[in-house]
Amino acid sequence: MSDATAAIIPPTKSRHLRACLLCSIIQTSSDFRSIGCPNCEEILQLKDSPDRILACTTSYFDGVIAVIDPETSWVGRWQRISKYARGMYAVRVKGRVPEDVEAELESRGIKYRPRDQTDQD
């Protein structure tokens, strides 16, 4: 996490936060375990799966965006999260989804765009 993120999120909480590698929503590990990802659960299947949480989320992310109304937020459009649930999102995450998730996205006709800003079109 960046220094700016650490200034916003209390240090005692930040070590438990993880960002989804597919949509970049930030939640605690226990939230991912109990409710899964509110945007990607159908594909990632994180609920009740600690191994899947470790593979599909990361604790390495920069920046935090609070999105209250994703559909009307210009930041939501900029981050490609305008169709997602309201919540806290990372500006950039480090890592990629596992190959099986990429294959699932491809089979559904969805282009995977990593959230680490290395694949900007």
Rank of each mutant, 00 (worst) to 15 (best):
C20S: 13
R15Q: 15
P98M: 11
S2F: 01
S59L: 00
R86G: 09
R52G: 03
L44M: 06
I68N: 09
G76R: 12
W74E: 15
D119H: 12
S73R: 09
T28F: 04
R92Y: 02
V91G: 12
F61V: 07
R15M: 05
V97Y: 00
D116G: 08
T28N: 03
V97R: 03
G63A: 09
L105H: 11
R18D: 04
L22I: 05
E99I: 08
A7M: 02
D121T: 04
Q79P: 02
C23Y: 03
R96P: 00
G63L: 04
E71S: 11
E42F: 04
R96Q: 11
S59Q: 13
P50K: 12
D100G: 03
W78P: 05
Q27H: 14
P11F: 01
W78Y: 15
E42C: 02
P98D: 14
D3T: 08
C40P: 00
V67G: 07
S2Q: 07
T12C: 01
D62H: 10
P70G: 09
S82G: 01
G109T: 01
T5Y: 02
Y60D: 15
Q117G: 03
A90G: 10
R15C: 08
C56M: 03
A4W: 01
A103H: 08
I53T: 00
D3H: 08
V75L: 15
R18T: 02
T72V: 13
W74H: 13
Y60G: 06
E99G: 03
T57L: 10
P70H: 07
D116M: 11
K13G: 01
W74Y: 14
T5D: 01
E99S: 13
I68C: 03
A85R: 12
A66S: 14
R115H: 02
R18I: 03
E102S: 05
P50C: 10
A7I: 04
A55T: 02
R96W: 06
R80N: 14
E42H: 08
R18E: 05
I9H: 07
C20A: 11
D48H: 14
T58W: 01
A55V: 00
Q27P: 06
T28V: 01
V101E: 07
L54N: 11
R33M: 12
D62G: 12
F61L: 09
F61C: 10
D121H: 05
Y89Q: 11
I8C: 01
M88T: 05
D51G: 06
T12M: 00
E41S: 11
V91Q: 13
M88F: 10
T28P: 00
Q27D: 08
S24A: 15
S59A: 13
S82T: 00
R52A: 14
P50R: 12
S30N: 12
G87E: 13
W78E: 15
G36V: 04
E42R: 13
A55I: 00
S14D: 02
V67M: 14
T118A: 12
A4P: 00
F32R: 09
